[in-house]
Design a protein around this nucleic acid. Structure first.
Lengths: 113, 113
DNA sequence: CTTTTATGTTAACTTAAATCAACATATCGT
DNA sequence: ACGATATGTTGATTTAAGTTAACATAAAAG
């Protein structure tokens, strides 16, 4: 992507790690299934060059290409819970602090005077 | 990405679903943390426009932008197990079929004649 | 060894991803 | 109501992502 973002040019180590990991995992899954790059790429709908980039963990490659590879390998379901609000404990705490779900008990009756 | 791949132009429904989900989840996490698009985008190292694309689930956006958003929200660890070979049961079966890990028991002794 | 098959590398080309500026329109707090 | 902040939209610009072709090298299969 032109005017390449900082995040793509030099991603934080954590992001780079995940990217390399993902690439390796996709490669492993492909080899286990005895697929060549060309075969898998064709099923995904990309060129073999992009699949090579994916296996290398290239940051600037379109997310759909990565997800397409997972999809063609039958591994897309692993993405379903990513950033799931139900599992985002940090977020839930912050939300609760703002708008307490349990209605605060009134100390006194509304109409006591 | 120019010469846009088929997978990006018209992703399979499953991929589109995951993409929309991811976008929504990132948005939810951002709002819970009371961050504006501009604030989060700046932390990620992208423009507010790209973050808007991400929350819409745009297929052609660089994977690093998506991962950067997860990272800035403290949700990147959700990606660690995606396509993990240890959890790829389908792949493990295929591999086992090819090269049986348990050495096949010899029916007869090696030196029986 | 020889022939496939898989992958690496380079170069040329097309086109849209990402940025910025400017303005419009919510949405929120006071 | 008001002003401030957040987000939507448009157009112009830049530049690299993705494609193809061609050739090189590596690894399997015969």
């Amino acid at each position: 992507m032109p005017r390449v973002s900082k995040i793509s040019k030099s991603p934080p180590a954590a992001v780079e790690d995940i990217l390399n990991r993902l690439g390796r995992n996709i490669r492993t899954a492909r080899l286990r299934r005895k697929l060549s790059r060309e075969e898998l790429a064709e099923r995904v709908g990309i060129s073999r060059y992009v699949l090579a980039d994916i296996e290398k963990g290239k940051p600037t490659t379109a997310i759909a290409a990565y997800l397409g590879a997972l999809w063609a390998l039958g591994l897309l379901q692993d993405m379903r819970e990513v950033a799931d609000p139900d599992r985002d404990e940090e977020g839930k705490i912050l939300e609760r602090a703002r708008s307490p779900k349990t209605a605060p008990k009134r100390k006194t009756l509304d109409d006591d005077f």
